[in-house]
Every structure is written in structure tokens, then in C-alpha cells.
């Protein structure tokens, strides 16, 4: 078997563009899924039973089904059944954000619930309103605690963006698979794809490990 790695070098700009798309998807999705997750978390703490249970159902559903299927569903079902037409990129963002928002909501909810009830009582006793307590006392404390979990989700998301290649969004996976089918240099291109992901993902994974050690809550 002869290997010809020049195919990787020749296509470097396409691969880099793919990697850029991967990063853009990750960052944009997280930017949407942070407020999305917070919103879902707050809805799950609502007093209205219907709001609480339907949000919970929504979150549990997204957490217990494959992301790849969610992307397919949005991609094929929205236009066919509801006549809603979105570009591939927007479809991808929508699928990823809904999924990651669900996971983030669990993280936020756990963070909020992890603050001792004494903190609520102390702040309410000062005469604050509930929204004030949430904004000024609970959320600032919860933020620090949820940081490691959010970072883990970030790394998962970074890898999960590869799934949007199935609807032809030109991320690193899509570009690599395309070069593979154009050049038939299967081993070289796919190995380069894995290596590029590893190159980008490894420092992130290490950073997350560090955050888990650094922000470990001891009470």
C-alpha cells in the first residue's frame, strides 16, 4: 500500500475552511444554547404545573433521542410537513441549539438547586423579591458551579457538530469526506480528519479536566 500524503497538503485550505465552519458552528450554537438553556431551566422551576411539565417533557425528549435523528427530523420534516424552508446552515444551528439547550438546562437547574436554601431565605429576609434573589444571589453563585459542566458540554458539542455533515453543511467532516470521494485517498484523508479533530479537541478536553479540578465544589 502506497501512501500519498500530498493530498492533505494540496487540500489544506479546504480543510482549514471546514475546521473554521466547525468552530463557527460550535461557538454560535453555544451562544444560542446558553440563554436557551437558562430559559428552559427557569421554566422548569415555574409555579405553573403545565409549564413545568411540558418543559420537562421537551428537555427529556431531546436528551433521550439521538442528535443525528433530530437533525434529520428538522431537515426533512419541516419542509415536507410544515412547508418551512431553512438553509442547511440554519437547520444545523436549530438542531444543535435545541439539543444543547436541553442539556444546558439540566446543568443550570442542577446549579440553581445546588445553592443551599439558606441563601434564598437570607436574601428573602432582606426584603428582596424572588427575581432579585435569583439574579443577584443565586445565579452568580450557580454560574461558577456550572462552569465545568458547561465546558464538558462545549467539548461534546464541538465533536457533535460533525453530525451536520449529513445535511451537507461544509464543516470539517463534510469537507474531508468530500475530498476522500474526489481523490480516493481514503486512509490519508480520513486520518488527517481524525488528526485535525484531535489537534483541536485535545487542548479543549485537557482544559475541561483542569476546570473540573479547579472548580470542584467543596462545601
Amino acid at each position: 500500500m502506497t501512501l500519498d500524503w500530498s493530498v492533505v497538503w494540496d487540500n489544506r485550505w479546504r480543510l482549514i475552511a471546514g475546521a473554521e465552519m466547525t468552530v463557527i458552528l460550535t461557538a454560535t450554537t453555544m451562544a444560542l444554547a446558553l440563554p436557551g438553556g437558562l430559559l428552559l431551566a427557569l421554566l422548569r422551576l415555574s409555579h405553573v404545573h403545565l409549564v413545568r411539565s411540558s418543559t420537562t417533557g421537551f428537555v427529556e425528549f431531546f436528551r433521550a433521542t439521538p442528535l443525528i435523528l433530530q437533525i434529520y427530523w428538522i431537515f426533512y420534516v419541516l419542509p415536507a410537513a410544515f412547508d418551512i424552508r431553512l438553509s442547511e446552515f440554519v437547520t444545523a444551528l436549530l438542531g444543535l441549539s435545541l439539543n444543547v439547550s436541553s442539556f444546558n438546562s439540566e446543568t443550570f437547574r442542577a446549579g440553581i438547586l445546588s445553592i443551599r436554601p439558606g441563601q434564598w431565605n437570607a436574601a428573602l429576609a432582606l426584603g428582596m423579591t424572588k427575581p432579585q434573589v435569583l439574579r443577584k444571589i443565586i445565579l452568580p453563585q450557580a454560574t461558577l458551579r456550572v462552569l465545568p459542566a458547561l465546558a464538558s458540554t462545549w467539548v461534546s458539542l464541538f465533536k457533535d457538530t460533525s453530525l451536520v455533515s449529513i445535511i451537507a453543511v461544509a464543516d470539517l467532516s463534510y469537507v474531508s469526506l468530500k475530498i476522500r470521494s474526489e481523490t480516493y485517498r481514503v486512509l490519508e484523508v480520513l486520518t488527517a480528519m481524525g488528526a485535525l479533530y484531535c489537534l483541536m479537541g485535545y487542548p479543549q478536553a485537557k482544559l475541561v479536566d483542569w476546570m473540573h479540578r479547579r472548580f470542584k465544589v467543596v462545601e
Binding site: 467539548v155 453530525l163 481514503v186 486512509l187 480520513l190 479533530y197 484531535c198 479537541g201 485535545y202
Partner: peptide, 25 residues
């Protein structure tokens, strides 16, 4: 562990199915 944790499942799947057979013949 670290290498696998930094690569998407999709990439591992396609590598294993398409590229790995070329390595082992």
C-alpha cells in the same frame, strides 16, 4: 483515552470502516 475523547464518533466510525481495512488489508 485522551485521543478518543477529542475525536467525534462520526470520525472514528468512518475511519474504522473505510480506512482501517486498508491498514489491516
Amino acid at each position: 483515552v485522551d485521543v478518543v475523547r477529542s475525536i467525534p464518533v462520526l470520525a472514528i466510525l468512518v475511519w474504522t470502516y473505510f480506512a482501517f481495512p486498508l491498514v489491516i488489508g
